[in-house]
Design a protein around this nucleic acid. Structure first.
Lengths: 205, 205
DNA sequence: GCGCTGAAGAATTTATAAATCATTCAAAAG
DNA sequence: CTTTTGAATGATTTATAAATTCTTCAGCGC
């Protein structure tokens, strides 16, 4: 880790402590700079904006999740089991992270609004694991042949959006979210199962 | 229609014109009262709050949709076709209503926050049509036996939430929403099809 | 040159007072 | 007695000025 990278980390840590304690908007660049014993202007040699600090923090948080996601996706258990584990793990993890640290929600909301590309990249990264589990399921003979696994993964994400970002999309409590996730996932996975027929409309518009 | 009901309608119409022209929050009770040639205080003999006027308006709007929903649900076309028609109709209808009249979104947002029960009742009413179409699909031999159609309808609603209230849950454009709705619906209906297997986890937690 | 500072500017937030608003209710009008 | 008004009230919104904040960058020290 070179000097540059070391300073970035120092700033990130100082910002993290402040963001978690006082929240993103109540933390000033001067405060973070003071904690790092430098001037506010100098931070801009390492991060081009305050929002970039938040994004770097979120990226670090996500990267930790990707390790867990990858571990789940690569398990040797049936793909069905892995799907459940994946989405329930993600639900519990994000829900409790936000529950315990309400400040995280503020950052997530700001990024969702100000950095939608960041959000989309995150979804694309998660999708890689979904595609793998879909393909494994096909290989297992549990899922039917699927023309475009990436598109199917996109559809799973669209249908399960409210469980991946629970507090942003609803006010439901965790047990209710679990109940709904279970049911929706059951239906979606049934739709992938070997016997399932993709519906064909008689009167296509 | 008795006197009481007639006055309610007059107030509702005056409020509707104002809400659509200036928005909910920019409309005052005095203005509505003036349009009805009465005092602001007198409105409260007919509606117990400004929010109640908005709710009554939304109820009227919804009731018009229920007529269309019922017509679709009662068609003699295959239930699959009706499902598509139902959700695409709902998407186009709510999307364009909000697109053309941005003021409607304000009212919808306020009701979602301040009157969550109203929202839940609306979902329950829609669910009746979904249950019917599910049961028809079973009778047609297209859908598999389903233990609890009401629960399944709830799950469909949970998975399709972002298409029922498009602008509230995402910033996606209509063509993207159509693309996603098509795929998600396909997957969900495949999950209901006769051959589909409800997934059973090997290692239940 | 290189790394950093601190002053400066533009944008945003805060603070505060004034104004407006939703709602209530005593009393007037019918 | 029923219906309606309009003044009173407390809450919310608006308006405005002051202060703070993010960000830039000329120039200082190494």
């Amino acid at each position: 880790m070179d000097e540059q990278e070391q300073t970035r980390t120092k700033i990130l840590e100082a910002a993290y402590d402040r963001f978690m304690h006082y929240g993103y908007s109540k933390t000033t660049m001067s405060e973070v700079a003071r904690d790092c014993e430098m001037s506010a202007g100098n931070i801009y040699r390492f991060f081009s904006s305050k929002l970039d600090i938040a994004e770097a923090m979120a990226e670090k948080f996500n990267n930790e999740r990707y390790i867990d996601f990858e571990a789940i996706a690569n398990k040797s258990t049936p793909s069905i089991d892995r799907f459940y584990e994946f989405f329930f793990f993600a639900l519990e993890e994000t829900y409790s992270a936000i529950e315990e640290e309400a400040k995280i929600l503020e950052i997530a909301e700001i990024l969702r609004l100000e950095r939608p590309e960041f959000f989309n990249e995150h979804l694309a990264k998660e999708r890689v694991f979904l595609v793998k589990m879909i393909e494994d399921g096909i290989a297992e003979g549990v899922f039917r042949k699927i023309a475009n696994p990436t598109r199917t993964a996109e559809m799973l994400q669209a249908a399960l959006m409210k469980f991946r970002f629970p507090q942003a999309y609803s006010k439901l409590k965790l047990d209710m979210l679990r109940y709904e996730l279970e049911g929706v996932l059951q239906l979606l996975l049934a739709g992938l199962s070997v016997g399932a027929k993709e519906p064909v409309m008689v009167n296509a518009e």
